[in-house]
Amino acid sequence: MRRRAWPLIVACMWLSIIVPAMAQQGHPLTGTWIGDWGSASGQRTAITLVMNWDGKNVTGLINPGPDSIPLGSVSVDYGSWTVRIDADTKDAAGKPVHISAEGKLEDLGSYHRTLKGTWQQGAAKGDFRLTRD
């Protein structure tokens, strides 16, 4: 048992570094992020966020496709890796709705890094969790 434990442990260590082998190593926000937002106990809404660093700004879309929402602004506090996202959309009745989210980027070196925080869409508030795809 003792002798079998070592290879198993190291295999797990190795696999843990092999799996994210194709990690994107540039600007940490660049890429496609998948997750959801909503209240902790209520309904969750799936979101896909695509972001790209162009050298001056982070640009992108929420839910790419025919109903995509362009990101209005993305700001980052690089001291804490806190990210604030603002965007504007319309509800089903065509009424303007503002989206604001603020979250913290965690595990920067991982391909599947995460962005978690609070999400407000119109009057609805909740939390969100995104994982880089």
Binding site: I17, P20, A21, A23, H27, P28, Y78, G79, L108, G109
Partner: peptide, 26 residues
């Protein structure tokens, strides 16, 4: 560095280069 790049470089330094892709044979 641009600010984001300096912050990322410092993160990699503080974490003792643990995420170095070369260590994964990249």
């Amino acid at each position: 560095f641009q600010p984001w790049a300096k912050a990322l470089y410092e993160y990699r330094q503080r974490t003792r280069l643990k995420d170095d892709p070369l260590a994964r044979c990249i």
